[in-house]
Design a protein around this nucleic acid. Sequence first.
RNA 1: GCGGGCGUCGCCAAGUGGUUAAGGCAGCGGCUUGUGGCGCCGCUAUUCGGGGGUUCGAAUCCCCUCGCUCGCCCCA
Length: 423
Amino acid sequence: MTNFKNLRGMVDLLPAQSQGWQKVESIALDHFSRAGLKEIRTPIIEQTELFLRGIGENTDVVGKEMYNFDDRGGRSCTLRPEGTASVARSIVQHGLLNNGPQRLWYRGPMFRYERPQAGRQRQFHQIGVEFVGLPSAMSDAEVISIAWDFLKDVGLVDLTLEINSLGSNEDRNLFKEELKDWLNHRFDLLDEDSQKRINVNPLRILDSKNNSTKELLREAPSLNDFLSNESKTRFDYLQELLENIKIPYQINNNLVRGLDYYSHTAFEITSDHLGSQATVCGGGRYDSLISELGGPQTPSVGWAIGMERLTILAGEKILHSKSLDVYVIHRGNKAEQLALKITCQLRSANLTVELDYSGSSFSKQFKRADKSRAKWAIVIGDDEASKDQLLMKKLRDNEKDEERKEYIFSMEDLDQLIKKLIN
RNA sequence: GCGGGCGUCGCCAAGUGGUUAAGGCAGCGGCUUGUGGCGCCGCUAUUCGGGGGUUCGAAUCCCCUCGCUCGCCCCA
């Protein structure tokens, strides 16, 4: 076998899809720049330790999904499974916080060794936002609104925003102990996964999908009841803010999320058009991540959107590509030279131009011109070339014959020609 | 990592053990060596994801492997 294939879960983005991605990305960039965000680009490889510390050793992502390897110097390296830890690292390393809070966005490939599924690949792409150094509930609301408006603008419908408060670290630790206690008293009633999690990550049991565990958990203590007054007030205020800017939300007290660094606000935006991987956007507040990585205590909030899932949802709507203005048809040696010349000139006048390379009959070239959906054809053959002229013909206009007009231009009259093409 | 379905030309597919692997779309060429959107004609898989096995004979049966897909876990 001499043919090569892509590795499992590593997907080629083909020309048919790349236009849709570009469109989505340009909408994102537009939203980000209007929100005053700056881009940050970090390497896709980091030392493994960063993710162990940042994401948490007991999370699934770290425990079973990372691509790790030793480099030639014997350093343990990891292909980043998410963006936030790297961004936090970079901010601390370069002392960006000395310039005040950072409002940033990033995009790029992430890697997780999982079984591929619809909307899930081993190399996948996130576009994300981080507000670093801002403690207020208002920043939570703003960050959520950036995601929400962006997704709406891409044309997504039937989105649901779910929010929850995980409380402060103290709230959560108190609750964890209480929950562990409660669960241990009912150990035998739990499913196997949940039993394993009791000591490692009891919070995750809360959004167990196991039916009998779900049933049992109805009676369980709720994190909500362990929130301090301060945390509660904060969460209430966030809701008030969201209502104020007319972003509909649902409270989901079981929304915990799988990365250890979250505190207070956690949120997800989901769609029921995605199959079982319903989350398009996930995020939350991470007030202790930066200090965990050796920086100052820095309250922060952010989210990430999965590009694969987003483009699945955006579907056809987004795929309209820029249509061609001109298709250049030519035949003969002299004509060829003029054809290339006029193509370049039109492009520098900002027109979209495609040049035929087949060298086949005019009839064939016209068929291709028609198929290209260009508005105009420019024709250069021996006749035109010898007179330094070109012929321009209007294509597919209202499907009416009288619109198929032809015009002859001399190569000198470029300005007139362009004017004709643009109107 | 676990469980179910699937894999025939660039795309959609028929074929389910017997000597030549339908068809449609797209592509290319011609009818029409200088004029398009229709029509007609022709060409395009020594091969059925890959490897091995069973058989006189396999795309069709078996094993392994790769990939896709759905669900679980988890997440974007």
